[in-house]
């Protein structure tokens, strides 16, 4: 059985290699991309072009991606709804707890920095959201599950609300575009504050969308981990 698989895969790889060689390797940018590069800063006000594409030109895809995380978190809450507590009830040794106590504010601030400076430097909502979610997972591992349940900032009930608030913020920005007479998810056309490119408060609605998707990703991933780890 395994030999048939290897044979099939070898044939497929050969076919793929011989055919895909012919894809033309472009020297200059494609026409759409050259427009993004030349006029991206003027159209959106963001200097990070990937973020401008993700949250302004193709913002609808980002809404879909945030919805995938939301659906995944909802699926986990649906499937893992029985309360059972696993091994890391009490957390790790005091050395790790002390170290974590020193590190965690810095990780948090770094995550917030990555989210908020998404339109200037590499980063953005998703990357920063993942950093904050990993902070939440670290806190659960180090301090134990009972810490998670009792503290208010990272507790699972608050996480569901944060996720929904992030989603509504995204949709709200989109609907602002409709209410001002433009299209859904319009950025500078809808009158958001443009500012000077390269500064923190610029690029219209892109920082707000970054924050919304960052909240959503952080809350969603932390709900996923908490559901598997034995929450309610």
């Amino acid at each position: 059985m395994k030999y048939y698989c290897v044979l099939l895969i070898a044939v497929l790889s050969l076919v793929l290699f011989l055919s895909l060689q012919d894809i033309p390797v472009a020297q200059d940018l494609m026409p759409a991309s050259s427009h993004y590069v030349n006029s991206g800063v003027r159209d959106t006000g963001a200097t990070n072009l990937v973020n401008a594409i993700l949250f302004d030109y193709r913002g609808f895809d980002t809404l879909g991606e945030a919805t995938v995380i939301f659906a995944s978190a909802a699926a986990f809450k649906m499937l893992f709804s029985h309360k059972r507590i696993f091994s890391f009830r009490y957390g790790l040794s005091p050395i790790v707890k002390t170290g974590m106590g020193i590190y965690s504010p810095f990780i948090f601030i770094f995550g917030i920095y990555v989210i908020m400076a998404g339109h200037i430097s590499p980063g953005g909502g998703f990357q920063g959201g993942v950093i904050i979610a990993s902070l939440s997972i670290l806190l659960t591992l180090v301090y134990g599950l009972w810490y998670k349940v009792r503290r208010t900032v990272f507790s699972p009930a608050i996480s569901s609300n944060i996720e929904s608030i992030g989603g509504f913020l995204f949709l709200g920005i989109g609907l602002t575009g409709i209410l001002t007479g433009n299209y859904f998810l319009s950025n500078l056309d809808a009158g958001f504050f443009a500012g000077t490119p390269g500064h923190m408060f610029s690029a219209g609605s892109i920082p707000i969308l970054n924050i919304a998707s960052g909240l959503k990703v952080a809350a969603g991933l932390s709900i996923i981990f908490y559901s598997i780890a034995g929450g309610e």
Binding site: T67, F70, K77, S160, N161, E163, S164, G167, L171, G174
Partner: peptide, 18 residues
Amino acid sequence: PVLLIIIPLMAAFALPLS
């Protein structure tokens, strides 16, 4: 077209609130 996609999403986002 956008409203057709957004309205069920709004309902879905509203449900898990506390």
